Structure formats: structure tokens, C-alpha cells
Computed example of a mutant assay.
Amino acid sequence: MCGRYAATADPDELIEAFEVDLDATDQPSRSVLVNPQDPPAGTPDFNMAPSKQAPVVLTRTPRGEVADRGEQADPIRQARLLTWGLVPSWAKDPKVGLRMTNARAETLLDKPSFARAATARRCLVPAAGWYEWQVSPVAKDAKGKPRKQPFFMHRGDGEQLGFAGVYEFWRDRSAPEDDPTAWIVSFTIITTAAETGLDRVHDRQPVVLERAAWQDWLDPTLTDPDEVRSLLESPGPGRFEAYPISTAVNTTRNNGPQLLDRLPDDHLVGAVNPATGEVLGG
């Protein structure tokens, strides 16, 4: 699964890295959070968690463009703030999104909650990397349960990641017709089996699309399920590195670049080196 990631790019970096034509991150959309998001949505967030609004890249006709021009306008690549945790259009309660932060690649096109979005509403989720918690095979915590060590996974070449995602629209039918905040636009991150090495941390990982696949993934005219499925196939192992970090990331209110600092090996207790399988500090 992917339950936390680092969205560290500032808006200008995101627009350049993902060749965005329209920055629409200032467009209003409804948040599911009770309290204001911290750090504010659209700014670098080193501890992105479900229910937050996150920068997402998609290709779509801009709102109002068709009406203004009186004709069908071309879809363009946009950056928008969407809520992490997909809320299907038919959902009665938006809280269902808390259970839909991830979608398995193996069943994406078979599940009613995701199938239509997978062929019509695909997106890229920009990230510097993601977090997972490794269950120690030897060490216990104070409660006698297996100790969990957080790791940060990132591209070895330092490039921005584009997680494969799909998005959906949900409208609060009790809200006024012209209320722009009646809409929740939400997304889910697609996951797959973890690559060799990363599987020593967790058995799942996000689907990270290569830059060469971004155009096809975002193409709204690509609707064939088999073609969509083929884009989710892994190009093979070796793209990513993983290293241990502080348990400060465990608390969502903790944030900042220090969360990405590597934890020295002599601070580890019963953690497994992802590259070698060696148990450290056992």
C-alpha cells in the first residue's frame, strides 16, 4: 500500500517537471478536513497523508472553456488540488474515501469503484518518494509487538516520481446548484507488487510511471482497458533506493525536509537492509 508520501515540489517546480499547461491549483474545491490543512494545500508537504488535498496532474478541458468559446475546446494538461481518497460519484457519504486511498493494479479495471475512472479519468500524482514501515523479523516494541521501522523510497536518479492514479467527482446534492465547494474531486494511488529489494520493506508499492508513459496515461482518448492495463506493467527493478528514517514521520503533524534524513545504522533495532537482507541492530 501507499499510505504516506513526500510531495516536496513547489508549484513552479511541479509545472516545469510535468510540463503543465495550466496551473489550476487555485480553483476552489471542497476539502474533507475539519481543520485547515497544514502545511497549506499546494505548498511542499513532506508528510502527505490521506484526506489532504494534494497536487495532481491531469488532462482535461478547462472549466468554462466550452461555454466561453461556444465550441468544443481541446483538453490540456493541468495541475489541480485533489483530495487523497477516492469518493465514487454514487457514494452517499464522502467518508468512504478513507477506505479508497489505494487501488490495486491487478483489479483496477474490475472494481466498480475504479473501473470507469481507469478508462476515463487518469492522473499523475507528483512525489519525491514514499514511506513504508518495515515489520522487524526479530525485534519487539514496548508492547511486545514486532517493531516497525519507517523507510523512505525514492528514485536512485533523483528524478520526480509520477504515481499512476485515477480521479473522480462527487457532488453534495444538498448544496446549492451554483456552489463550487459542493464538489469533492478526489483521487486514489494505484499500487502493485513491490520490486525485489523493496519487498524487504513492504510487499506493495505505488505504480511509478516512466516519463515516456506520462502522455499516454494522461490521454483522455485512450479508453481501451487492455491498453490501460499495459501501461501499469513495471519496466523492471533497479529504479529505486530505500533507506531508514526517523519515526518522526509516524505522526502526521510532523513535517519538513528533516523527515527525509537518513537514520544511521547504529540507530536501527532489528531492521532489514533492503539491498542485502542483512539484519541491523538485532
Results as ranks from 00 to 15, higher is better:
7 A>D: 08
232 L>Y: 07
194 A>E: 00
152 F>P: 02
90 W>F: 15
154 H>V: 02
107 T>H: 14
51 S>H: 02
239 R>K: 10
182 A>D: 03
231 L>W: 02
200 R>D: 01
199 D>W: 11
175 A>N: 05
80 R>H: 07
83 T>S: 12
151 F>H: 02
238 G>H: 06
100 M>K: 01
13 E>K: 11
63 R>W: 15
256 G>L: 12
143 K>G: 10
167 Y>H: 10
79 A>W: 06
172 D>H: 07
44 P>M: 09
127 A>E: 02
246 S>V: 01
50 P>I: 01
111 K>E: 06
173 R>T: 13
24 A>F: 07
34 V>H: 09
200 R>S: 00
33 L>D: 00
166 V>H: 03
229 R>A: 15
173 R>W: 12
61 T>N: 02
126 P>S: 11
65 E>M: 12
240 F>M: 14
238 G>I: 03
228 V>N: 13
101 T>R: 10
91 A>Y: 15
176 P>I: 07
143 K>W: 11
10 D>R: 14
116 R>G: 06
13 E>Q: 15
46 F>W: 15
43 T>V: 13
182 A>S: 15
280 L>G: 00
173 R>Q: 12
201 V>L: 08
79 A>V: 03
153 M>H: 06
84 W>A: 09
197 G>F: 05
146 P>C: 09
252 T>Q: 11
109 L>C: 11
120 A>C: 07
50 P>H: 11
220 P>E: 03
148 K>G: 00
248 A>R: 15
183 W>S: 01
40 P>T: 02
196 T>G: 03
268 L>D: 02
263 L>I: 00
37 Q>T: 10
281 G>F: 13
118 A>D: 02
76 I>K: 01
158 G>L: 08
13 E>V: 12
176 P>A: 10
146 P>H: 04
78 Q>C: 11
189 I>V: 15
213 A>G: 03
40 P>G: 08
136 S>T: 04
233 E>Q: 14
127 A>N: 06
153 M>R: 00
137 P>A: 08
